[in-house]
Design a protein around this nucleic acid. Structure first.
Lengths: 146, 146
DNA sequence: GTTGGTGCAAACGCTTTGCATCCAT
DNA sequence: ATGGATGCAAAGCGTTTGCACCAAC
């Protein structure tokens, strides 16, 4: 089930970089790998720590730059947490929205977007064409609600 | 119509402060007044500039602290813009979501929350109790779509 | 008179940038 | 070989904090 959502394997990455004339560096691959292997949103510092375990010399600035690149390529999404901090996760397939556990801060699941039809209705009601939206859901995962 | 949404007048503010044993200072009142008289979300710096026009000595830190207080009281909402910057607006009545114009950055309207029923459905589908959500809509206002 | 709020400036944390070096192509 | 990517350190920016003073109660 999760595989359906996170369908983008690491294998095609090299091609994706090359198609955009970007270099396929071990740093970029590590950043992506770390996110792919995590079931949680990760903060910059967590990512940095995990990447350094794989590639000891990696600098924080490189993590920032790699994330920007991966976001630009649509491989990673930036998550805005309620406290104003940012975290990052592998981009899900299609248009979905993260559900974040309020206890353990894990991404529990990506919900399908419930706004497609609603946007339409809202556009009619308000006379404003809704172009875009930003939605995050917060709840308690099974482990934490026990 | 806008009056319906922004129904909280400035008159009751004093009482609201006192009910929480907070002091009713000219700085706090000015910050609220500035937001109330604006039809746009305002950045900290805009608020600070406008407040200084009313109360020349006001420091930036005070604006930050006043906003925190007003948010805590539910009188003001913090808006997370796409670029990561924050802005502030008078809180609408009830549970609503801002529609921000992608051209002029004004708050066009507060849409009624379309998620009440949806949260319920999502909770059933996923088995996760959705506790909360964060939603912002982006579109183009009449003036800007011309 | 007390207590909490303010102004100022310094500190803070996250993020970006400049530059020399390195490495994927 | 060469241009883009990296590492490091410094700078930048928005925000918070410490402290002495002031004003609301």
């Amino acid at each position: 089930m999760k595989d359906k959502v996170f369908a983008k394997g690491q294998d095609g990455i090299r091609d994706i970089f090359h198609a955009r004339k970007l270099k396929c560096t071990p740093q970029r691959l590590s950043v992506f790998k770390v996110l792919e292997e995590s079931e949680t949103y990760l903060s910059i510092n967590s990512i940095h720590a995990k990447v350094k375990a794989l590639l000891p010399g990696t600098g924080l600035a490189t993590v920032y730059r790699s994330l920007d690149t991966l976001i630009d390529l649509g491989l990673v999404v930036k998550v805005h947490l309620e406290d104003g901090c940012h975290s990052y996760a592998v981009a899900p397939e299609g248009h979905r929205h993260p559900i974040v556990c309020t206890e353990c801060n894990r991404v529990i699941e990506f919900a399908e977007c419930p706004l497609d039809k609603i946007s339409e209705k809202l556009s009619k009601d308000t006379g404003i064409e809704i172009q875009n939206h930003f939605l995050q859901l917060f709840g308690k995962c099974r482990g934490c609600s026990a």
